[in-house]
Amino acid sequence: SKTSNTIRVFLPNKQRTVVNVRNGMSLHDCLMKALKVRG
């Protein structure tokens, strides 16, 4: 089974995003990807 960790990230202006960290990806990469999608 694939394991994925879901991390809630609290952003300024009362924004919130959820990042799924996959195996083999660093938290930083996942964060940058999530913020790019939002931006």
Score class of each variant (00 low, 15 high):
S1Q: 13
S1T: 15
S1N: 14
S1A: 07
S1L: 08
S1R: 12
S1I: 04
S1G: 12
S1P: 10
S1H: 14
S1C: 11
K2Q: 15
K2V: 03
K2M: 10
K2T: 04
K2N: 10
K2E: 10
K2G: 07
K2R: 09
T3I: 08
T3A: 15
T3P: 13
T3N: 04
T3S: 08
S4G: 10
S4I: 09
S4T: 12
S4D: 12
S4V: 07
S4C: 10
S4N: 08
S4R: 11
N5H: 12
N5D: 10
N5T: 11
N5V: 15
N5I: 09
N5Y: 09
N5S: 15
N5K: 12
N5G: 07
T6R: 14
T6S: 11
T6L: 01
T6V: 15
T6M: 08
T6K: 08
T6P: 08
T6A: 08
I7V: 08
I7M: 03
I7L: 13
I7T: 05
I7F: 04
I7S: 00
I7N: 00
I7D: 07
I7P: 02
R8C: 14
R8L: 14
R8S: 08
R8G: 02
R8H: 07
R8P: 05
V9G: 01
V9L: 02
V9M: 03
V9E: 01
V9A: 12
V9T: 15
V9K: 07
F10Y: 04
F10H: 15
F10T: 07
F10S: 12
F10V: 03
F10P: 07
F10C: 13
F10L: 09
F10I: 04
L11V: 15
L11Q: 00
L11P: 00
L11R: 01
L11M: 14
P12L: 01
P12R: 00
P12M: 07
P12S: 01
P12A: 06
P12T: 04
P12Q: 03
N13S: 11
N13K: 05
N13G: 02
N13I: 10
N13D: 09
N13Y: 05
N13H: 03
N13T: 15
N13C: 02
K14I: 07
K14N: 14
K14T: 05
K14S: 07
K14R: 11
K14W: 07
K14E: 05
K14M: 09
K14Q: 03
Q15P: 00
Q15E: 15
Q15R: 01
Q15H: 02
Q15L: 05
Q15K: 02
R16C: 10
R16S: 05
R16H: 10
R16P: 00
R16L: 04
R16G: 03
T17R: 07
T17N: 01
T17F: 07
T17I: 00
T17A: 09
T17P: 00
T17S: 08
V18D: 03
V18T: 15
V18E: 02
V18L: 03
V18I: 11
V18F: 03
V18G: 03
V18A: 13
V19A: 10
V19T: 15
V19I: 11
V19L: 13
V19G: 02
V19E: 07
V19D: 00
V19F: 13
N20K: 13
N20H: 14
N20T: 04
N20S: 08
N20E: 07
N20D: 09
N20I: 11
N20Y: 13
V21I: 12
V21F: 07
V21S: 12
V21A: 13
V21L: 09
V21G: 13
V21E: 01
V21M: 05
R22F: 02
R22L: 14
R22S: 07
R22H: 12
R22C: 11
R22P: 14
R22D: 04
R22G: 11
R22N: 12
N23T: 07
N23S: 10
N23H: 05
N23I: 09
N23K: 05
N23Y: 13
N23D: 13
N23C: 15
G24A: 04
G24R: 03
G24V: 15
G24S: 11
G24Y: 07
G24D: 05
G24C: 14
M25R: 08
M25V: 11
M25L: 04
M25E: 02
M25I: 06
M25K: 10
M25T: 13
S26T: 14
S26N: 11
S26D: 01
S26C: 13
S26I: 14
S26G: 10
S26H: 07
S26R: 10
L27M: 14
L27R: 00
L27V: 15
L27P: 00
L27Q: 00
L27K: 02
H28R: 10
H28P: 03
H28N: 09
H28Y: 11
H28S: 07
H28Q: 14
H28L: 08
H28D: 11
H28C: 04
D29V: 09
D29E: 03
D29R: 07
D29G: 13
D29Y: 14
D29A: 05
D29H: 14
D29N: 11
C30R: 04
C30F: 09
C30W: 00
C30Y: 08
C30I: 12
C30S: 10
C30G: 05
L31T: 07
L31R: 01
L31M: 12
L31V: 03
L31P: 00
L31Q: 00
L31A: 07
M32I: 06
M32R: 02
M32V: 09
M32K: 08
M32T: 12
M32A: 02
M32L: 13
M32S: 07
K33Q: 15
K33I: 03
K33M: 07
K33T: 02
K33G: 03
K33R: 11
K33N: 08
K33E: 01
K33D: 02
K33L: 07
A34V: 04
A34S: 05
A34G: 04
A34P: 08
A34T: 05
A34E: 01
L35V: 04
L35P: 00
L35R: 00
L35Q: 01
L35A: 07
L35M: 05
K36T: 06
K36I: 10
K36D: 12
K36Q: 09
K36M: 15
K36S: 07
K36E: 08
K36N: 15
K36R: 09
V37W: 12
V37A: 09
V37L: 05
V37M: 12
V37E: 02
V37G: 04
R38S: 01
R38L: 01
R38C: 00
R38P: 02
R38G: 01
R38Y: 07
R38H: 01
R38Q: 07
G39V: 11
G39S: 13
G39R: 12
G39A: 09
G39D: 14
G39C: 02
G39E: 04
